[in-house]
């Protein structure tokens, strides 16, 4: 059943959307940013603890579709211990993959489960939303970021 959809909703995505990792507010966070998709009401808040250039800890809260939730969950799993530069580079690779399906670079790792999203243009924003929020948090932008 739904072979066509297994590309989009891979088991890992369904799993992370149902039991998201690092899904809590972080009291000791020194960077916070919110992302919103006004079209469907998805909302995500990213909490970062930065030590110098390094992401020491990261968590998120929010509500949204399976894709945006899983994206936020896997993102928090992948970014711990990375430097600001590494996060930005990974964001570019992830963005490229989600919009074209092409995987360039070897940093992607298990984020590769989002490669199928490019076949569903209406859902690209869902997957990218938490990434916008994390970059905004690192930059210390005070305003919520929006996909629109």
């Amino acid at each position: 059943m739904f072979d066509d959809l297994n590309d989009l909703y891979q088991q890992v995505i369904l799993d992370h959307s149902k039991s998201p990792r690092n899904f809590q507010k972080m009291e000791k966070a020194n960077r916070v940013a919110e992302g919103k998709n006004p079209l469907c009401g998805d909302q995500v808040t990213l909490y970062l603890l930065m030590e110098g250039e390094v992401v020491k800890d990261i968590s998120f809260q929010g509500s949204g579709c399976a894709i945006s939730k899983a994206s936020a969950s896997l993102l928090t799993d992948s970014l711990k211990g990375k430097t600001r530069e590494q996060v930005k580079r990974l964001f570019e690779e992830v963005r490229e993959m989600i919009t074209t399906g092409k995987i360039n670079g070897d940093e992607i790792g298990k984020l590769a489960v989002f490669a199928g999203v490019h076949k569903f243009p209406a859902r690209v924003k869902c997957a990218i939303l938490p990434w916008h929020a994390v970059v905004a948090a690192m930059e210390g932008k005070p305003e919520p970021v929006s996909t629109e």
């Binding site: 739904f2 066509d4 959809l5 909703y9 079209l39 009401g41 579709c65 209406a122």
Partner: peptide, 23 residues
């Protein structure tokens, strides 16, 4: 229950059923 409207309409569309999901 347990299915976000956005996911629901994406899957319905894969079955040829055009719904709207959102606000």
């Amino acid at each position: 229950a347990d299915v976000h409207a956005h996911d629901l309409v994406t899957v319905a569309d894969q079955r040829g059923v055009a719904l709207r999901g959102g606000h």
